[in-house]
Design a protein around this nucleic acid. Structure first.
Length: 426
RNA sequence: GGAGAGAUGGCUGAGUGGUCUAAAGCGCUCGCCUCGAAAGCGAGUGGGCGGGUAGCCCCUGCCCCGUGAGUUCGAAUCUCACUCUCUCCGCCA
């Protein structure tokens, strides 16, 4: 969420930022009105509380000296009732203000290009060259099914649409990709591995911005307050929820493998075949907690870490910077690395790297102390996929397919595949 | 699932209705001492929300003893519910 003080003092900055996103900014006036009313009430009730504290002390003294305090007690009985009423009113206003603030998106960074939607995103670089096939390249779902390493039909039987069974070398390839990515990020990029729960409570979902606004995208365990995580970003960012970190701990880099669960409400009919859009998929996620002044450098490094995986797997890709209309609710700036997918004839998102600045930290209350004795400040949080495993699997099948239907294993992955060089039928 | 114990500041830990602003110790910061350090001595040492002035200081008020309700003129302290932790039993990968 945004800083209420920023909204209070510079409403026009916020208004303009929301307009650049193409967002309605009517809520702002409501925020300002609620904020003013809240502060007025707080002032009044605090005056009453001050009075109550003083008189309560007097009563204590009177009783001690054996004097009659019944008049004061009678007066305070009335004051206390009034305080209770006003406290309730303040609480109601707090709740309303909070609800409003949670629904306002982040302010895009000045370097983010203006644009109304994804068509105006900007390609910032391209690496690798899509391969010239001497034959008609097949889609990964055909390759995988033919090789017997993907089984969508049985997945539909045991669970439903948008689930996958990986089998044999396919199952191993999933495991290999996860290990390969995590090893790279821990050994070469300085990330500490964590393995968090895949179910989190409501506060965690609010902390990273999935709730309350995007509830219909989540799976919730019936009869509980637990949600299946849509990304490791949720448990990992919430690791430090409500904490004040020591400056010497920063920056914190975490890498986490988790399964991810998404209801995909509203995307019926989109990407119905293959691994691109599943209800459950694997992802290796990178999460950073950094000092504010470093967060944009850290974002560039984060994108580089994700790209490194693509380079090592020798997959052609490009990096796109999202415009103001497509930057995402919580992000101030976002890059999407996209991998070349031959059967699509275009680049497909395989990672998403964002700087949230203090937007998540404010919701999740994650601070650090810049210097001993100094006031705590909010950290900046960042995260990015490094990478989405299912889509990487698909990209390998498509880019490394051979005319005979087999798939070559990228060299970097072979140590994780028992030195297997090629997946063949049977 | 059953039984019991517990939750207080960075940590340990006292505090069972008003003697305020939560004792004490440890840790940390600063100062004195010292060639320097240790010891010793002294001082300081949380978070949040308002108001005044001011964009950082400062003055002032309110709130925070796991969370939320309640009793009371007044709650860390009494009552209820919930959450979490620990011990034992049962079940279990």
């Amino acid at each position: 969420m945004l800083d209420i003080k920023l909204i209070r003092q510079n409403p026009e900055i916020v208004r303009e930022a929301l307009a650049r996103r193409g967002e309605d900014h009517a809520a702002l006036d409501e925020v300002l009105a609620a904020d003013e009313e809240r502060r007025r009430l707080i002032y009044e009730v605090e005056q009453l509380k001050k009075r109550r504290n003083e008189v309560s002390d007097d009563i204590a003294h009177m009783k001690k000296e054996g004097r009659d305090a019944s008049a004061a007690i009678l007066e305070m009985r009335e004051v206390s009732g009034k305080i209770k009423e006003m406290d309730d009113a303040v609480r109601a206003l707090d709740e309303r203000l909070n609800t409003l603030l949670l629904a306002i998106p982040n302010i895009p960074h000045a370097s983010v290009p203006f644009g109304k939607d994804e068509s105006e995103n900007v390609e910032v670089r391209r690496r690798g060259t899509p391969r010239e096939f001497g034959f008609e390249p097949k889609a990964h779902w055909d390759i995988g099914v033919d090789l017997g390493i993907l089984d969508f039909e049985r997945a539909a039987k045991i669970t439903g649409a948008r689930f996958t069974v990986f089998r044999g070398a396919g199952a191993r390839l999933v495991r290999a990709l996860i290990s390969f990515m995590i090893d790279m990020h821990t050994k070469e990029h300085g990330y500490t591995e964590v393995y968090p729960p895949f179910l989190v409570n409501r506060e965690s979902m609010v902390g990273t911005g999935q709730l309350p606004k995007f509830a219909e995208d989540m799976f919730r365990c019936e009869g509980t307050d637990y949600y299946l995580i849509p990304t490791a970003e949720v448990p990992v960012t919430n690791l430090y929820r409500g904490e004040i970190l020591d400056a010497s701990q920063l920056p914190i880099y975490h890498v986490a493998y988790t399964a991810c669960f998404r209801a995909e409400a509203g995307s019926a009919g989109r990407d119905t075949r293959g691994l691109v859009r599943q209800h459950e998929f694997d992802k290796v996620e990178l999460v950073k907690f950094v000092r504010p002044e470093t967060s944009y450098d850290e974002l560039e490094k984060l994108v580089g870490d994700a790209e490194d995986v693509l380079q090592r797997l020798e997959l052609p890709y490009r990096v796109v910077m999202m415009c103001t209309g497509d930057v995402g609710f919580a992000a101030a700036k976002k890059y999407d690395p996209e991998v070349w997918m031959p059967s699509y004839g275009r680049y497909v998102e395989i990672s998403s790297c964002s700087n949230f600045e203090a937007f998540q930290a404010r919701r999740a209350d994650i601070k650090f102390r810049p210097a001993p004795g100094a006031k705590p400040e909010y950290v900046h949080t960042l995260n990015g996929s490094g990478l989405a495993v299912g889509r990487t699997f698909a990209a390998i099948l498509e880019n490394y397919q051979e005319a005979d239907g087999s798939v070559t294993i990228p060299e970097a992955l072979r140590p994780y595949m028992g030195d297997l060089e090629r997946i063949t039928k049977g």
